[in-house]
Amino acid sequence: MLVLTRKLGESIAIDDHIKIVVVQIKGKQVRLGIKAPKETKIHREEVYKAIQEQNTEASQADLSEISKLTDELQKK
């Protein structure tokens, strides 16, 4: 992994079109500004983690849950 040191207001350029700016430093928090073309996907990493976990949990469902759900859904 490439590690760079930056000060407040300084930035990093990735390729020709992506720019990451250190906008604010407050205690243990860093605010980053990201300039990128519209089609670039930018997510907090937690989003991917949450989806991985959701997928894992989803794959554990079996038909007993479905039959429970069928009963439950048909109750008036």
Partner: peptide, 16 residues
């Protein structure tokens, strides 16, 4: 994709 826990009324869908 759906997550269907033991308590089926807590089921959820991944809209994201």
């Amino acid at each position: 994709i759906l997550t269907i826990p033991q308590n089926v009324t807590e089921m959820s869908a991944n809209l994201k």
